[in-house]
Design a protein around this nucleic acid. Structure first.
Lengths: 345, 345
DNA sequence: AGGCTTTCAGAAACCGCTTTCAGAAAGCGT
DNA sequence: ACGCTTTCTGAAAGCGGTTTCTGAAAGCCT
């Protein structure tokens, strides 16, 4: 069970001994926390190089009371969505000298009975919370302790001043649906909602409603289904509609994954996209521009969101004041699946 | 700069004091490392609950000489590929009680001059190496120190017994190409290589060659091009072939992205897929089953690869012996683009 | 030259936990 | 009742750094 590492790691004492100085001096050279004579510094650096020394992170954390690590709490990772998000967070964190610790919350939080939160303030200097698996109460507990927190794509519980980074979902959705109405003359536009409770979905639905209302269209409940932001779920919903003879000339699928499911279901049933039914998504994942037909969607700056969130968190950790809400703009991306750009390319 | 956390964290001493025992006893209760009287245990647990105590990870690491964290080294994250990979690794790690620390190597390793490897043995108990940005020399250095390492999708430098998890690229490719030859009677099958130096690509090419040889087909160099595992690159290559009048009745595009590029180029040139030219990919990305024609490809168990790799690494960390090579099976997925299933579905 | 500030370096006190070592108390066989 | 395990517990020594405190040496001014 015990791991024996052959040549034992050099420690700060080894360096100090070799350089003929005290460990305090080595520490100062390492961190630049106090002036050190040029010559001494040289000695120390040589010793460091000779011993291939690198400071022990845990010891540093313990003594220095900071981990230089930020945590990311995600729901079960899946879908194309998380790559750019993680990438944004990671690169932003690394620029500031922070590591990234990732936890997916398979929802089994306090198992056994011990209160073992997976990523608590002991392992990280702050937490980026994406998932809705962390209850408001737990959020409050962390926040109450003064633990830096930033929320991604979800709003803060009432009364807690936790910064939030999210998207202009409503405006984006409205623009998208208006494009279907105005440019393509769609009258019966179906909407596929995301997972219940998902805030992005709620806002997109709000945008969809606004667009309908603004153009005097009926908001037919029969045209509301569950897409769950999931390929298979969306496909099943559309299949069901098809078999029930529900009429629609367009589908706003909630997100791109669901849009693909819709297209699958429609194609299998012999309906052409976009000739018979227009389908639009949301997110502009990489695949959206590659599939046939190329998907009309709304570009969401996922990577930027990640980047911003990390930046906010790090500012918070460093004791700076930050804005409480970052609302990132979305952009309509018109391709083929709505009926535009009929030919190839 | 300094962060003041309002109610200072409870420590093991606080718990000990409240429970009226020594910190050693608390530690034993925490870890179950030695028998503790029932009643004492109860006292301690109550104190823990009352103080909402959770042990400080860094202190634990320092004292216990293990981090319970594994590191993952990736190239710049992008593409749908990494989500299942990370997910596989993360879930496998968490099952074993390990955290996951992710680093993307933007290639700027030893900056400044200090030897600061981003994830070294101080932060993690072992490392999962995906990227080829870590040189053989650096791998050797880690390995020489007895630091647990597992490689993903890349083979070990000569002479180092570092476990590797990779795919049965060759067998998969061979099966795929044989399907073209046997079922569809293709005689002139082109191959698009991936990025130079990419091991997956080399093996796929080897499988392609084997298939040709096994069926007495000529391996015409004119039918070898660069696909670079990239949509645009593959498209350009095929366009060039077309304009040069190169003759072929099938293309094995190296991967799915490239296959899409091929289909685009062919379609634009008025060639029908699969009637005029069969096109097959590799990976079975989500889109492969959605595009028209639906792509015949080889399914690769990415998530499983991640899961296995993490498992191997953890075994290694725990001092167990592990197999040096895990070759994950691939599976032929026959759809339309090869000429099968002419109609829908 | 004497007093005062700066600059640089070391001793030592932690940081919060694990683990060894040793001892007290309790159980057991005869 | 007496030695001998066995069971449980505490004191204390680290783990490898950071940081405070203090002091020696050097620089500066009058």
């Amino acid at each position: 069970m015990t791991v024996q590492r052959s040549p034992k790691r050099a420690t700060i004492s080894d360096v100090a001994r070799l350089a003929g100085v005290s460990i305090a001096t080595v520490s100062r050279v390492l961190n630049g926390t106090a002036p050190v004579a040029e010559e001494t510094m040289l000695q120390v650096n040589q010793a460091i190089a000779a011993l291939d020394f690198a400071p022990h992170a845990a010891a540093r954390t313990l003594a220095g009371r900071r981990t230089d690590t930020i945590g990311l709490l995600l729901p079960e990772i899946s879908g194309a969505f998380y790559s750019p998000l993680i990438h944004g967070i990671e690169s932003s964190a690394r620029e500031a000298g922070f590591d990234l610790l990732i936890h997916t919350t398979a929802d089994r939080f306090r198992e056994g009975g011990r209160i073992q939160l997976p990523l608590d303030e002991h392992n990280t200097d702050g937490l980026l919370v994406f998932t809705d698996r962390l209850s408001d109460a737990e959020l409050a507990r962390f926040h109450g302790r003064g633990f830096p927190l930033v929320l991604l794509y979800r709003s803060a519980p009432a009364g807690l001043d936790i910064p939030v980074v999210t998207l202009e979902n409503k405006a984006g959705a409205r623009g998208l649906v208006e494009h279907l109405i105005v440019t393509h003359g769609c009258r019966r536009i179906a909407f596929l909602a995301g997972p219940s409770g998902n805030e992005d979905s709620s806002w997109r639905e709000a945008g969809y409603r606004e667009a309908l209302r603004a153009h005097g269209l009926d908001d037919d409940p029969a045209l509301h289904g569950l897409g769950d932001f999931d390929n298979g779920r969306a496909r099943a919903t559309v299949q069901q509609w098809l078999s029930q003879g529900v009429l629609f000339d367009a589908i706003f699928a909630g997100d791109d994954d669901a849009a693909m499911g819709c297209i699958q279901a429609l194609t299998e049933a012999g309906r052409r996209v976009p000739e018979d039914v227009a389908v639009v998504g949301f997110d502009d994942v990489l695949l959206a521009g590659l599939m046939i037909p190329r998907l009309t969607t709304v570009r969401t700056p996922i990577e930027t969101a990640g980047r911003q969130a990390a930046r906010l968190l790090i500012s918070l950790i460093q004791g700076e004041a930050v804005e409480q809400l970052v609302l990132l703009p979305t952009e309509l991306v018109i391709r083929q699946s709505c009926g535009c750009n009929g030919s190839l390319h």
